[in-house]
Simulated scan of single mutants.
Amino acid sequence: MPFAIHPATSERFDDVALLLAPRNPDSPTCWCLTYRLPPKENQALTARERPEKVRELCSGHIPPGILAYDGADVVGWCGVAPRSDLHAFTHGTRIPRVDDLPVWTVWCFRVRGGHRGRGVAQALLGGAVEHARHSGAPAIEGYPVDNRGARVNATMAYVGTRSLFENAGFTKAADTGSVSDGFPRVLMRLALEQY
């Protein structure tokens, strides 16, 4: 693998910010919090409070994601955590719960401009699988678009594609009620150990 993968710990917060922060610090960008927080809490955070919330998460027991590096340069981000930590997936109705396993979830990919098309997202997904496995997860899920090879708008491609997940060994476990960029999203899962 040409990219090194590391957890998004507090020591790497500046690299997280490089990937998630908007150009305008007063812009209320997601900061990969939309799926994690209850809607009222998420909407109440100001643009200046959002990075501090992510900094707090990076200091926690379970980092909020992983980072990909090409040498010393950070080139990608992937949100990965226990599904139970993500409000949208524990309380929402569009992404089904397949069973009661304490699965982990991959919900966001971000690749820096100039580094796309080089396999960064694939490396991030592989790193997410290893991070979840090392943390004792019995399985890992993602909810990518089933675009069947059609082009996906770069802004909406953050959820990944079905083929990205299939190339990493995931299989379709369920349909979802969610759509992104006009494409249906599917629940893809990979078993990590016997539970």
Rank of each mutant, 00 (worst) to 15 (best):
1 M>W: 05
2 P>S: 14
6 H>Y: 04
7 P>T: 11
8 A>Q: 06
9 T>M: 01
9 T>R: 08
10 S>P: 05
14 D>T: 11
17 A>E: 12
17 A>I: 07
19 L>F: 02
19 L>V: 04
19 L>K: 01
19 L>G: 06
23 R>K: 15
23 R>Q: 05
26 D>C: 05
29 T>R: 10
29 T>S: 14
30 C>I: 03
31 W>Q: 09
32 C>K: 06
33 L>T: 12
33 L>E: 02
33 L>C: 08
34 T>W: 14
35 Y>C: 13
35 Y>A: 04
36 R>Q: 12
41 E>G: 11
41 E>V: 15
42 N>V: 10
43 Q>R: 08
43 Q>W: 13
43 Q>N: 14
43 Q>M: 02
44 A>T: 03
46 T>P: 01
47 A>H: 04
48 R>Y: 05
49 E>N: 09
50 R>D: 12
50 R>H: 06
54 V>Y: 04
54 V>C: 03
55 R>Q: 11
56 E>S: 09
57 L>E: 08
57 L>N: 05
60 G>S: 14
60 G>F: 07
63 P>I: 03
63 P>C: 06
67 L>A: 08
68 A>E: 04
72 A>H: 09
73 D>N: 13
74 V>Y: 03
75 V>F: 03
75 V>C: 09
75 V>N: 00
76 G>F: 08
77 W>R: 07
77 W>M: 01
78 C>I: 06
80 V>F: 05
80 V>K: 06
81 A>V: 05
83 R>H: 08
84 S>R: 15
84 S>E: 15
85 D>F: 09
85 D>A: 11
86 L>F: 06
89 F>Q: 06
89 F>C: 03
90 T>H: 07
91 H>C: 13
92 G>D: 05
93 T>K: 15
93 T>C: 13
94 R>L: 13
95 I>C: 06
97 R>L: 05
98 V>Q: 03
99 D>Y: 04
103 V>S: 13
104 W>R: 01
105 T>D: 06
106 V>W: 00
107 W>V: 10
108 C>W: 04
109 F>C: 00
109 F>W: 10
110 R>M: 07
110 R>W: 03
111 V>H: 04
112 R>N: 00
113 G>R: 09
115 H>L: 00
116 R>M: 13
118 R>L: 13
118 R>K: 11
118 R>P: 07
119 G>V: 01
121 A>E: 08
122 Q>C: 10
122 Q>E: 10
123 A>F: 04
125 L>P: 07
125 L>F: 00
125 L>R: 00
127 G>Y: 00
128 A>W: 01
130 E>F: 12
131 H>T: 13
137 A>H: 04
141 E>H: 07
141 E>C: 02
142 G>E: 08
142 G>F: 05
142 G>Y: 11
143 Y>R: 08
144 P>I: 06
145 V>Y: 12
147 N>L: 11
147 N>G: 06
150 A>W: 02
150 A>S: 12
156 M>T: 14
158 Y>C: 10
159 V>N: 02
159 V>T: 12
160 G>W: 01
161 T>H: 14
165 F>G: 10
169 G>Y: 00
170 F>I: 05
177 G>D: 00
177 G>W: 03
177 G>P: 12
177 G>Q: 09
179 V>D: 11
179 V>Q: 09
179 V>K: 12
181 D>E: 02
182 G>C: 08
186 V>T: 01
188 M>Q: 14
188 M>H: 10
188 M>W: 04
189 R>N: 13
190 L>H: 02
191 A>N: 15
192 L>R: 05
192 L>T: 00
193 E>T: 15
